[in-house]
Simulated assay, not measured.
Amino acid sequence: MKQIVLLIALSVMGMLVNAQYITNNGFENWTASDPDDWHSPNSLTSPFGVTTVSKETVDVYSGLNSAKLETKSVLGTPIPGILTNGTITINPPYLIGGTPFTQKPGVFKGYYKYTPATGDNCFLDVLLLKWNINTNQQDTIGYAQFTNLATVSTWTMFQANFTYNSIDNPDTMQIALISSNPNAAVTGSILLVDELSLEGGTLGLNKYYLLKNISIFPNPATNIINIKFSSETKYETAVSLYSLVGQKVKAFTLPKGIELSSLNINDISKGMYFILIQSGKEKIIQKISIIQ
């Protein structure tokens, strides 16, 4: 009996660890019209009185909320509901960037419901990318893609295995959830998504834990970023700044035994960045705005 309880506990712990690789993976936290740490076309379509992504509070797989993506007409053009941890550009319409990520999972999983318009299909995929300093663009290290064109009226698990094109590790993960075929969207398709996760592969082989009791300020920052630890660090600390497209723009190494460090960012252009702080087996990733 004790062995069964232990196996169940380890299984639950594994699911929790895997879920942490995707921030706000259950879409529980929302600010305004988008789930926290996700982006949608809402800011582009709302001037026309249209929102394609919304918080669903009744039809959920678990927790209090799920994400509802709908393909709607804007000035006669079908615009799919899209959620991404990257950035949506207008001209040309494109997804760029993502969040810092350096491992090679085996499977992309989650739960969904889908009501397609005639001839339409949904897309749920992950790209693992790495910045190429020679071409000044991102290379695709691996990907996982799930697509479906049938009606799914009850919450169902989807699963997509990763395919890898390179022996390199990625530096960025880009997730895209789309209610329609992006090349042939049809108005009326509805996709509900909840509880995303990554499993298998190299996840957990180099396991990291959340770096707690740390303050990063000010945010927005101008010339200086301060990093304050709750006690003296036991290891050297690596601090990296990444652009939203995954390019490392600045790196610092802090000696062990410090509690407060001030980093000069005078040479960094204004904009949004990810700051990655890693000390021993602990790390934290946070968005930060620089306003010069």
Score class of each variant (00 low, 15 high):
Asp171Gly: 11
Asn181Met: 11
Gly204Trp: 07
Asp168Tyr: 14
Leu177Lys: 02
Gly204Gln: 08
Ile178Lys: 02
Val186Trp: 06
Leu192Met: 09
Leu191Pro: 11
Asn161Leu: 14
Thr172Lys: 00
Val193Ile: 15
Pro182Asp: 03
Glu195Pro: 10
Glu199His: 08
Asn181Arg: 13
Gly200Asp: 09
Tyr164Ser: 02
Leu205Ile: 14
Ser189Gly: 09
Ile190Met: 01
Ala185Phe: 00
Asp194Asn: 03
Ala185Pro: 09
Ala176Met: 15
Gly204Ser: 03
Asn161Ile: 08
Asn161Thr: 14
Thr187Trp: 03
Ser189Tyr: 06
Gly200Gln: 03
Leu196Glu: 07
Glu199Ala: 13
Ala185Met: 03
Ser166Gly: 07
Ala176Tyr: 09
Leu191Ser: 00
Glu199Phe: 09
Ser180Gly: 03
Thr172Cys: 07
Ser180Glu: 05
Leu192Cys: 04
Ser189Cys: 04
Asn169Ile: 10
Ser189Ala: 00
Thr187Arg: 00
Ile167Phe: 10
Gly188Ile: 11
Glu199Pro: 01
Ile175Arg: 01
Leu198Tyr: 07
Ile167His: 10
Asn161Ala: 14
Asp168Ile: 04
Ile167Asp: 14
Thr163Val: 15
Gly188Asp: 10
Leu198Gly: 08
Ile178Pro: 01
Glu195Leu: 12
Asn181Ala: 12
Leu205Arg: 10
Leu203Arg: 01
Asn169Ser: 14
Pro170Met: 12
Phe158Val: 07
Leu192Phe: 12
Asp194Tyr: 01
Pro170Phe: 10
Asn183Ser: 14
Ser189Met: 00
Thr163Asn: 14
Asp194Ile: 00
Asn165Asp: 14
Leu205Gly: 05
Phe162Asp: 10
Ile175Val: 09
Ala176Lys: 15
Val193Lys: 07
Gly204Asn: 01
Ser179Thr: 08
Ser166Val: 08
Leu198Met: 09
Glu199Trp: 08
Val193Thr: 01
Gly200Ala: 11
Ile167Thr: 15
Glu199Gln: 11
Ala185Glu: 06
Glu199Cys: 02
Thr187Leu: 02
Ser180Lys: 03
Thr187Gln: 05
Asn169Trp: 07
Leu198Asp: 03
Leu198Lys: 10
Gly188Leu: 09
Thr172Asn: 07
Leu191Gly: 07
Phe158Ser: 00
Asn183Trp: 11
Ala185Thr: 02
Asn169Phe: 14
Leu205Gln: 11
Ala160Ser: 13
Met173Asp: 04
Ala185Ile: 03
Ile167Trp: 04
